[in-house]
Design a protein around this nucleic acid. Structure first.
Length: 274
DNA sequence: TTAAATTCCTGTAAGC
DNA sequence: TGCTTACAGGAATTTA
């Protein structure tokens, strides 16, 4: 599923191809994938708009248009955003098609439909709570261990639950939460508050390392994730614990444990993670 | 206010 | 082989 590294890969791929292009028209095959505004207004508003740039915020893709308007794409679990030649056969579960002035099409496809499209100014989307208030970007150079410490210390829930909370830290999902906790040698069910500064420092380094490494490898294709060209990533072969329940820990050889935490499957090593 | 539980969805795989 | 069932999970919504 797309998390920060996967979204970052798509955004970096799309940016040079979309910046400066104009959206000629938009077709909604499954209109309810658009959550705001209504489908007709959405289609009319994007038509003729020039694309100023493409950004990422957490797991959100932000396509900047004219007049401060932003086309927001959240991929959910199985969302895919692809830039294709119009003759490319339409895949099942394609919900939106944006035709560009260079003849190509940007297509949104999402079998499970957990994803969504939004349109508005960033300020209005935040104010109307169509977009949630997100925590800091963990790979931002300004994101310091001290900030992570402050965000963990008053929480009375598990470390795993806080890492998944987009309002605490933006962009970490189930894969990289488990990977980061393993690298930091911390049990996912440990209480987030009451972690020592030294442990938080280790977690801070681990989160950044896990995300940066995954970006360098173009993300993890563990489910249906594909990049903007429909290609798989490379990080799924390098994951330490995610999806490896029962298999030996790469550090100590003990079988990895699977538990249910914060409503998510969680894999960790009972010996290496305390 | 915070945390936990529920809900939305379909493809995939396991079990009989 | 073919059917049923469980499972995967991001985040909005509901409940505690």
């Amino acid at each position: 599923m797309p998390e920060l590294p996967e979204v970052e890969t798509i955004v970096a791929d799309l940016r040079p191809h979309l910046a400066g292009r104009t959206i000629l028209r938009c077709e909604l095959i499954f209109p309810t994938i658009v959550r705001h505004p209504g489908p007709e207004v959405f289609i009319d508003s994007v038509a003729g708009m020039r694309i100023a740039g493409v950004r990422r915020r957490g797991k959100y893709i932000l396509v900047d248009l004219e007049n401060d308007l932003v086309l927001v794409v959240h991929l959910g679990m199985t969302g895919q955003l692809r830039l294709v030649d119009p003759v490319t056969p339409l895949q099942k579960h394609t919900h939106a098609i944006f035709t560009l002035d260079d003849g190509r099409q940007l297509r949104y496809r999402d079998p499970r439909r957990f994803g969504r499209l939004l349109l508005g100014t960033e300020a209005s989307l935040l104010a109307s709570k169509k977009m949630p208030r997100l925590g800091p970007e963990p790979i931002d150079p300004d994101f310091a261990p001290d900030e992570l410490y402050r965000r963990l210390r008053n929480r009375r829930t598990s470390l795993k639950a806080v890492l998944l909370d987009q309002g605490a830290i933006a962009g970490v999902g189930n894969i990289y939460a488990d990977e980061s906790l393993h690298r930091a040698r911390l049990r996912p069910d440990r209480l987030a508050g009451g972690l020592s500064r030294k442990s938080v420092q280790r977690l801070h380094e681990s989160i950044r390392h896990s995300l940066q490494t995954a970006i360098a490898n173009r993300g993890s294709s563990v489910d249906t994730y594909r990049d903007a060209w429909g290609e798989i990533g490379g990080q799924q072969e390098k994951l330490l614990v995610y999806g490896r329940a029962g298999e030996p820990c790469f550090t100590c050889g003990r079988p990895l444990t699977l538990i249910r935490l914060a409503g998510r499957s969680t894999v960790f090593c009972r010996r290496c993670q305390r």
